[in-house]
Design a binder for these strands. Sequence first.
DNA 1: AAGGAGTATGCAATCGTTTGCACTACTAAA
DNA 2: TTTAGTAGTGCAAACGATTGCATACTCCTT
Lengths: 377, 377
Amino acid sequence: MQSFALLKTQIRKYKLTPTYYFCLHLPTNNSNMSEKRALTMKDIARELGVSASTVSRALKDSPLISPDQRERIQRYAREHNFLPNELAGSLRLSHSAPSKLIGVIVPQFTHYYFSTILSGIEEQASLRGYRIIAAQSKERFEHEEHICQSMLGLRVCGVIVSQAKDTTHYEHYQQLMNAGMPLVFYDRICTGLNTNRVVVDDYMGAYNAVAHLIQTGCRRIAFYGSDMHLEISKNRYNGYRDALLKAGISPDDSLHLICDNRADAEIITPELLASANPPDAAFAVNDDTAIGILYTVKRMGLRVPEDFSICGFTNGERAIACDPPLTTVEQRGNQVGKEAVDILLDKVEGLTPMNKIEKRVVKTRLIIRGTTRPINP
Amino acid sequence: MQSFALLKTQIRKYKLTPTYYFCLHLPTNNSNMSEKRALTMKDIARELGVSASTVSRALKDSPLISPDQRERIQRYAREHNFLPNELAGSLRLSHSAPSKLIGVIVPQFTHYYFSTILSGIEEQASLRGYRIIAAQSKERFEHEEHICQSMLGLRVCGVIVSQAKDTTHYEHYQQLMNAGMPLVFYDRICTGLNTNRVVVDDYMGAYNAVAHLIQTGCRRIAFYGSDMHLEISKNRYNGYRDALLKAGISPDDSLHLICDNRADAEIITPELLASANPPDAAFAVNDDTAIGILYTVKRMGLRVPEDFSICGFTNGERAIACDPPLTTVEQRGNQVGKEAVDILLDKVEGLTPMNKIEKRVVKTRLIIRGTTRPINP
DNA sequence: AAGGAGTATGCAATCGTTTGCACTACTAAA
DNA sequence: TTTAGTAGTGCAAACGATTGCATACTCCTT
C-alpha cells in the first residue's frame, strides 16, 4: 500500500485533489449532481443586490425592512418558488427550537390497526405543521434499535413508538430520552419504563362486549387471548371476567384459551366444541381469531349467531367482509394516533412540562353486527 | 403601535433582549429545552483535548489519525452513544451528496394496497440506508401541493408519489424536478408528465383472471370497473375484452358496468341478475366490489361458485375473510414499492442517468380460491 | 548538521439560515 | 448646528460536520 504522506506531498506539489480523499470516500463523481440545485437566500441576495440577512428578514415580514424592499424580495421569492432550507434553519436554531420532524416506529405498516394509528399520527402532525419519519420494526428488536439510532442521528423532535413483540431491553429508548427527546408509546407499551402512553380501554372494551353476549342470552363464553404476560391480554381478560361475575357467572378456566390467530383458532375450536360442556359463545382478542372461530363453527354445522355467538376486537376491514359480518370492538386507531401526537408536541412546544408523564386511555366502542343475536328476545 | 427604533435604542442602552424579537417570534421561553441536548463532536473534542477535525477523522477511521488516538476517541464516542448530526452533515455536503431522506406521498395509509406499497418502500429504503418521510394527500389536491412544498423545504433526495384522484395540474411536481429531485410515480401515474413510474400489469392481470373464468366454464362474464378515463380501468377492461375474444366470445356492452365499490355493487347486481340474459360470472376491478357482488349473489339464492363465479383484484385482507374466500388478482404492492425505491435511488446515487426515464411493470399473480370453480371439470 | 520524507494534528472555511450588534443616513427638536 | 432619535442595512458569528491546507514534530539520509 502506498504511503499517504508521499501522496500528500505530491498533491501539494502538483496541486492535485488529495488522494487520500478517494481512499476514504468512494469517488463521488455523481454526474447527476450539480446540474440543478434549490434556490437559497444567498442567491436571492446576490440577484437583488442586498445581503442575506435582509432577505431572511424580508421573507419573515420583519418590520425592520422597508415596505418596498420587503415586497420586492417577497415577489422575487414567490416568482422563483423559493423555499427556505428547513434543515439549515433547524440546525441554526437547534438550541432554541427543535426540528419539525417526528419519528414514528410501527411494528408493521400493513397491519390494519397500525395503519389507522399511523394515519391518525400523520393527520395530526400535519395539522400542527410537522412531518413524520416512519419506519417499521417488522417485529425485530435489532431493527427497532437501529431505527432509534437513525432517529437520534436525524435529530427528530420526539418519537412515537409501539414495541416489537420481542423487545425486552430498553437502553435504546433511554438513549433517546437522554438526548432530550420526548417519547410516547402506543398500543404496545414498554413496561420497563415509566413513560407517556396512549392505550385503548381494553378492560371496558372487553367488559362491554361480554356484557352484550350475556345480554343476548349467552352463558358459556370462551375467551381466546394471547399469552397473559402482555398487558393487552391481561386487561381484556379482566374485563371478560368481571362482566361474567357481574352477571353471576363464575369464570371457567377450561374456557380460557391461549390463542390469538386464525390458524390456531381453527385447530383449537373443534376440540372445544366437541367437549362435554361446550361454550355457546366466544370473545376473541382480535378479528383474525374471531373469523377463524366463525368459519370453524359454521363448518361444524352450527348456525351463527343462532347457535353460537362471536365477538372480535379491532374492527378492521375484515369485520364487514366475513359472513355474517362480525360484531367487534372498535379500537379507534385514528384517535390513538392523534392523542399520541398531542402529548408529544405539547411537550416539544413547551405547553406541558417534560417531566410530567401523560397516560391516556382511548374509549372503545362496541360495533354490533351479525355474529351476535339481537338484543330483544 | 410603539416604534421599533425606540425599542431598539432602549434595548441597546439597557442591554435588554431586543423587543422586536418578541414581535416576530412568540417568546420561546420553552422551559423544556436546554436541559439536555445531544452530544456533538465539539463536546467530545473539548472533553478529550483535541480538535473537532481530529474527532471527525477518528470516527471515520481515517488513517491520518494515530491508532491509539483513534481508539481513544472511538471508545469515548461508543461509551457515550454518540451519533453524528445527520442534518449538519448533509448540509455541509449538500453540493456533493444529497440527504438520505426520501419523500413519500400516499393518497391514504389505511387503504390496504397502499399500505403494502408503503411497506415495500420503507423496507427497501431502509435496506439501502435511507429513511422515509411519509405523508397522506387524503385525495385532496391542495394537501398534495402542500406536501410537495414541505418535501422541497426538507431537501429530501427524491420523491415517490401516487396522485390524489382530483389532481390535474402538476406545477408542484415540476417544482421538485427543477430543484433537481428525481420523481417516481406509482399506481396513479401523472399522465401530463413523462416521468419514472411503476405500475402493475393491469392488462395481463385481467386477462389471466378472465381466461381462468372461461377455463372453468363461465361464458357470460360481467365487468365491474371504474370510470373509463382512468388508466387502470382502461387496461383492465382491455385485458378482459381480449381474453373473451381469444375464447371466441364477443364482449356484450350490457355486461360492462361502471361500478367500483361494494355499496354500488349491491344495488346494481340484483337488476343484472334479474335481466333476460343474466351473467354467470363477474370480474371486478377491486376486492371491495367483488365482495359486494358475492354477498348479493348469495342473498339471491345462487351458489358461489357452482352457479356464479367471481374474481376480484387486489388480494387484500378481506379476500380471505369472506365466505367462500375470494379468487383475486394479487397486486404485489410490496414489489411495486421496492422497484420505485430502486429507480429513485439509482438516480440519486448516480448509477442511472437523471434524464433517463424508467417505466417498470410489476407482474400480477392470480390467486385461485373459493369463488371460482376448480379447473378439472 | 541540514534537508527531506513522513506522521499526526489543528485551523479555517464551507453548507444555508438566523440574529445580535454596528453602522449609515436620515429627520426633528433644541 | 448640534444632538438625539429613528429607519433600514450589512457584518459576522453561530448551529455541527467535513475537509483542504498549514503546521509541528519525528526520523532518516546524506
